[in-house]
Amino acid sequence: MTAPLKHSDSVTVDVALGERTYDIVIGRDVLQSLGARVAALRPGARTAIVTDRNVAKHWLDKAAASLAQAGIAASQVVVEEGEGSKTYAGLEKVSEALIAAKIERNDLVVALGGGVVGDLAGFAAAILRRGVDFVQVPTSLLAQVDSSVGGKTGINSPQGKNLLGAFHQPVLVVADTAVLDTLSPRQFRAGYAEVAKYGVLGDEAFFSWLEANHADIFSGGAAREHAIATSCRAKAAIVARDERETGERALLNLGHTFGHALEAATGFSDRLFHGEGVAVGMVLAAEFSAQLGMIPETAATRVERHLAEVGLPTRLQEIAGFAQEGLADADALMALMAQDKKVKRGRLTFILLEAVGRAVIANDVEPALVREFLKAKLSRKT
């Protein structure tokens, strides 16, 4: 691995998509450059900042001030915090507010927030006047390393996660690592699950580096910027090769088939954050891979041990309200997984492991095997 970045450094990662190539700017205090960067991209454009109430308390004024200093007019749309805003009603609220603000096709929507805000604002931008450009300003670790990059936008259906949406790439991502200082420990841990995912699915050396350096990442040391930049490079490379997930990009869903079902079973509530669901899902994917003889048990144990060491849940029984209907029922979880976007003609697709650092797409997985696997995991004691 290369040496970690210094705090004083910022780094730019390109997402290479031809004429739609855009930069991910990563570093401490880069939010103050937002206005200048937007002005350079879209001279004369107006903006609308979409954010949630919690982020607004910390960062809305700073973002608006940066835009104002660059002479950019900015209206504001504030939604409630959490997955409850990533709904039909939330989309209607944001869309109508953008129309009322007279955001035109040559203007910009600025998504200032975590994954929920980015997905919601990005989807609203994708459908507003048949497509308005937008800028991602991710304020959570999860959003900085995952949801702000790659152009997936959307909302949830009561029947499943992210079932309504569009591919709509941002024109810029500004990832200020200083904003992560305001996250709760639980929120930061949830985001870290997506960082670890990049090592597990495609970079064993990075996973080893995380095992040795996670304490510095959590404490806010220079390793934090290095982990974010490495994660963004990994995702950018995959997105550049497979923008619309017709093949390799599906690997980024490691842990998500199980995880999204668990999120739906818990009502997309704070009982289970997205990254927590991914952590449990990654362990389940590793254990299922071991059961199928694809990896040794020691490899699955290694994944579980690292996630548990940083404080993430790794077992179904650790999810709040585990005994409630939908979590302790293998058939109910199977029904939720049947709504997964990777299902093809009713057959399940999983991302499984051939090694720590090498994931594969497993098409047409036998449902009976998954059901029996889940029953066994549900029956084990805490």
Rank of each mutant, 00 (worst) to 15 (best):
R371A: 15
V370D: 00
E83G: 11
V280W: 09
L348G: 04
L292T: 12
E276Q: 05
V171E: 15
S85K: 02
K197L: 02
G115D: 05
S66C: 13
G191I: 05
R371M: 13
A3V: 15
V145W: 14
L5E: 03
G18T: 12
A68E: 14
E245C: 04
V13S: 01
A143D: 04
A126S: 13
R233D: 02
K93R: 15
E354M: 05
P367T: 14
V365E: 08
V173I: 07
F134S: 06
E263H: 08
R37E: 13
I155M: 01
A166G: 07
E297S: 15
E287M: 08
Y192H: 07
R105I: 08
L252T: 04
I72D: 01
F258L: 04
S208G: 11
A111P: 11
L369D: 09
Q291I: 06
I238L: 01
V283L: 06
G154E: 04
Q69H: 14
V370P: 00
A368I: 15
S75N: 13
C232F: 12
S184L: 10
L251D: 02
L369N: 08
A125Q: 03
Y88L: 13
V38M: 03
L98V: 02
F207P: 00
A290P: 06
H274S: 05
V116M: 10
A368S: 14
Q144P: 01
F218H: 13
T314F: 05
T257H: 02
E83H: 02
K86G: 07
E243A: 02
P367H: 08
A111W: 09
V110S: 09
G71S: 10
D61I: 08
V174K: 03
R345G: 09
E81Y: 11
R105P: 06
G221E: 09
R189M: 07
G44K: 08
F258R: 00
N156A: 05
G199S: 09
Y192N: 00
W209F: 10
A39D: 10
E19L: 11
G357K: 08
F350T: 04
V200E: 03
R46T: 10
K235M: 01
N156G: 05
L272A: 00
Q291F: 02
G118E: 12
H260L: 06
A178L: 12
A290Y: 03
A193R: 00
A45R: 07
L210R: 09
G90H: 00
R233F: 10
A143W: 04
L378W: 02
L141S: 00
W59S: 07
A234G: 13
L316R: 02
G326W: 06
R46S: 07
